Lab assay of single mutants.
Amino acid sequence: EETGVRVELAEEDDGEKIAIKLWLRIEDIKKLKGKYKDNEAIEFSFDLERDVPEDVAQEMVESGYVCEGDHKTMAKAIKDRVSLIKRK
């Protein structure tokens, strides 16, 4: 499903790190509610043992990086990427 958002690794995952750096990349602004630039990327750290995707997305909303209306879309994108990383 195309959401307009993609999360990718910002650094090589060696399988050892607990906290990883990720990029939340805006790919299609028409599919989102907030005002973003095409190909805008937000770099953030995610602790694989402690962080919760919904909470991280909420922090982005509170910091003004993400529109409240896009919270669920961002949280799902983060959750999907993190579950792929954890499965390795």
Rank of each mutant, 00 (worst) to 15 (best):
D80M: 00
S63D: 09
D51T: 02
E68G: 09
R6K: 10
E68Q: 13
D38P: 15
E8Q: 03
V52W: 05
H71V: 15
F44S: 01
E40P: 09
H71W: 13
R87M: 05
K30T: 14
D38A: 14
R81H: 09
H71K: 15
D28V: 04
E27T: 15
F46T: 00
K35M: 09
R25H: 11
M74A: 09
K86T: 09
D13I: 08
V66N: 03
R87V: 03
I42A: 03
D38T: 14
S45R: 11
G4F: 05
E54L: 02
K86W: 02
R81A: 12
V61S: 01
E27N: 14
D47S: 02
D47G: 01
L22I: 06
Q58H: 09
D55Y: 09
K37S: 11
L48F: 05
T73E: 08
K30R: 13
E43C: 09
L22A: 09
Y36V: 06
S45P: 09
R6P: 03
V52A: 12
A10G: 10
V66I: 14
E49I: 08
L9G: 04
K35L: 06
V61D: 02
E62I: 09
R6D: 04
S63P: 01
W23V: 15
E43V: 05
V61N: 00
D38E: 15
K35I: 10
E8V: 06
K72D: 14
S63Q: 13
V66R: 00
R81K: 14
R6Y: 05
E40G: 09
I20Q: 05
K30W: 03
I26D: 14
P53V: 06
G64W: 01
N39H: 11
I29H: 15
R25C: 10
I78N: 02
N39E: 10
S45L: 14
I85R: 00
D80W: 01
G34N: 02
Q58I: 02
K35S: 12
F46E: 01
I85D: 04
K17D: 09
L84N: 10
K31N: 10
R50E: 08
A41N: 10
L84K: 14
A10K: 08
V82F: 01
P53M: 05
C67R: 07
E16L: 07
V56K: 12
G4C: 04
K86P: 05
L24W: 03
A77Q: 04
N39Q: 10
E62Y: 07
D38Y: 10
R87A: 08
S83C: 08
V7D: 00
A10I: 08
Y36C: 06
R6M: 06
A10E: 07
K76F: 04
A10M: 07
L84F: 10
K30F: 03
I78G: 02
E27G: 10
K86A: 04
R6W: 05
K21N: 09
V7Y: 08
S63W: 06
I26W: 05
V82L: 05
V52P: 03
K76V: 03
A19S: 15
K86L: 01
V5G: 00
V82E: 03
M60P: 02
R25V: 14
V82T: 05
K17Y: 01
V56G: 00
L24D: 08
E62R: 13
S63Y: 09
D47P: 03
K72C: 10
K30A: 12
T73I: 13
E68A: 14
G4T: 06
E49D: 12
K76E: 08
E59P: 03
A57Q: 00
E16V: 09
K79N: 11
A75E: 01
G34Y: 06
L48M: 10
E49F: 04
